[in-house]
């Protein structure tokens, strides 16, 4: 268990399996804010209704020492069952979903549809002067899509945050 005191800050995706009980999310968030760690994205939902377990996915960043500390602090929380660093523990897939509202008419409206097509975004709502696109993918892909929509009448964005899972047959 030797950790180099490097100063290189890297982004990590951490999956946490917790008891789905009152206050558990507050514990996790409070740990991050109280100790000055940053949260780039956070998702949470119950994943095992029988065992009443929820899964929290947090994207954070820090030096190796800070990331180790974050994981150790998370494991210290009493309702935490499992903490897995998907960034270092083998390959994983991660996805995010966004709903993107674009308002406009004429050439701008047509252009937004064209770009949505290239990004495989679906239209889930439309009026004469607006679309709501649904787009799924890596965070960077969503960033790029939203940026392209800006000059075309972007008015609203809702993102889920990252959900991630390890590749292969094994559970967390």
């Amino acid at each position: 268990m030797i950790i180099q005191n490097e100063e290189i800050v890297r982004r990590h995706t951490i999956a946490i399996l917790v008891d789905n009980e009152a206050g558990v999310l507050a514990r996790v968030i409070g740990l991050f804010s109280g100790r000055g760690y940053n949260i780039e994205s956070l998702t949470v939902a119950e994943v095992d209704p029988r065992e009443q377990l929820s899964r929290i996915t947090i994207v954070t960043s820090g030096t190796p020492m800070v990331i180790e500390q974050i994981k150790a602090q998370l494991r210290r929380l009493v309702p935490v069952h499992k903490v897995s660093d998907l960034t270092v523990e083998g390959p994983s897939v991660s996805r995010e979903l966004a709903l993107v509202k674009v308002a406009g008419t004429g050439e701008r409206r047509v252009e937004s549809l064209r770009i949505a097509d290239i990004f495989r975004a679906r239209v889930v709502d439309s009026t004469n002067e607006s679309f709501v696109f649904e787009i799924v993918g890596a965070t960077e892909k969503l960033d790029a899509f939203i940026k392209l929509m800006e000059p075309l009448g972007l008015v609203d964005v809702s993102r889920t945050g990252v959900a991630a899972i390890a590749r292969g047959a094994n559970p967390i």
């Binding site: 268990m1 950790i3 020492m65 180790e68 500390q69 150790a72 494991r75 210290r76």
Partner: peptide, 9 residues
């Protein structure tokens, strides 16, 4: 475990 490598490696 959270005391390990917290401030001193």
């Amino acid at each position: 475990p959270s005391s390990i490598n917290k401030s001193v490696a």
